[in-house]
Simulated assay, not measured.
Amino acid sequence: MPDEIIDVWMQQPNARFMAQPWLETLVRWTGMSRLAPTTAETLDAMDAAGVRLGLLSAWHSPHGVLISNDEVAALVERHPDRFAGIATVDLTDPVGAVREIRRCVRDLGFVGVRVVPWLWNLPPNDRRYYPVYVACVEEDVPFCTQIGHTGPLCPSEPGRPIPYLDEVLLDFPQLVVVGGHVGYPWLPEVLSLATKYPNFYVDTSAYAVHRLPAELVEFLRGRGRTRVLFGSNYPMLTPAQCLKKLDELRLGPEAKECFLGGNARRVFSLPL
């Protein structure tokens, strides 16, 4: 393993988050506990896989906050060498969302913004996202989102890359977008966007790497080695579970370093 692994999609969930009914399918598939892990357990899970830094996501749903930006900021403050923050916003309050992104980036040092489309049942070309995109460009942070089908029993259509993300990337050529959860079953659409747009990236969260679609692995080995980032979606999967069979991908040294940490450091402008 390289000296540095960065996990670009993690959560430090609270009881409110773990009680959400839409987690039921993930609990059934993964056998994960409904009990929120402690911070110590999260750090142990990172250490078990050699993860140097985890990007912790805040979560906001149409019904309110699930994991607040301030909760994430408090964890980052306590463990600045292990965590960085990914902010979230309320799409129904566009002015408040812009102000919150500015606060999180300028005052709290967050390195990105994440909104999960299936949670809102709104594809990313919906007008309610557009103030968020402007704020991300102005603050020079990536917009992180989910692509592909949903694990929870919610509509998958908002995760379809074309036309939704295609339109966003056309409208905001300066916006850096990281699409998490791979994008299955629309891999040809995902890879076409990653080929077409220099600011679109893919992360492998929610997948053990040996279960990644073959098309994505081929992309990662070759022309896409600077465009794919490692993520786990902890605690749904641990980093160790995700990386257990990394050698089966047969990545060259450059592709492995980029995938496990180099791309994340560059895309999120993380300090050396």
Rank of each mutant, 00 (worst) to 15 (best):
F17M: 15
S61D: 12
L175A: 08
P213T: 00
G64D: 11
R221M: 00
F110C: 05
A15S: 13
R28T: 15
I6H: 04
G183D: 02
Y201N: 03
R127P: 13
A73I: 01
W9G: 08
R102K: 10
P158K: 06
A45E: 09
L251D: 01
L220I: 02
R250F: 00
V209K: 04
M46Q: 15
N233R: 10
G222L: 04
S205K: 06
E4C: 13
T238N: 05
T88C: 07
R265Y: 02
A208N: 11
G50S: 06
D44N: 08
R227A: 01
V76A: 00
T195N: 08
P94S: 05
L193S: 06
K256D: 10
L53M: 14
L175V: 11
A74Y: 01
L270E: 10
E100A: 10
V177H: 07
T30I: 08
G64A: 06
V202I: 15
A19P: 11
P235S: 06
H63G: 14
L53V: 15
F259M: 06
Q12H: 13
C242Y: 10
R223A: 13
L23P: 04
G50I: 11
W120L: 09
L119N: 11
T92L: 09
P62D: 03
S205H: 04
A206P: 00
L153D: 15
R227D: 02
V177F: 11
H79G: 03
E41D: 12
L187R: 09
N125G: 04
E138Y: 01
S269Y: 01
S57Y: 06
L53F: 07
V105G: 01
I5T: 10
T39E: 12
D126N: 12
L91G: 04
Y133K: 06
V51Q: 12
P80D: 01
N199S: 08
D166M: 10
P142V: 03
P80C: 01
E77R: 15
G96E: 12
V209S: 02
V111E: 03
W59C: 14
E77S: 14
R28Q: 15
Q11C: 05
M10G: 06
F259A: 00
P62S: 02
C258E: 14
P142W: 02
P131W: 07
D107A: 11
V190D: 03
L23N: 13
G109E: 11
L216K: 01
R225A: 02
G224D: 07
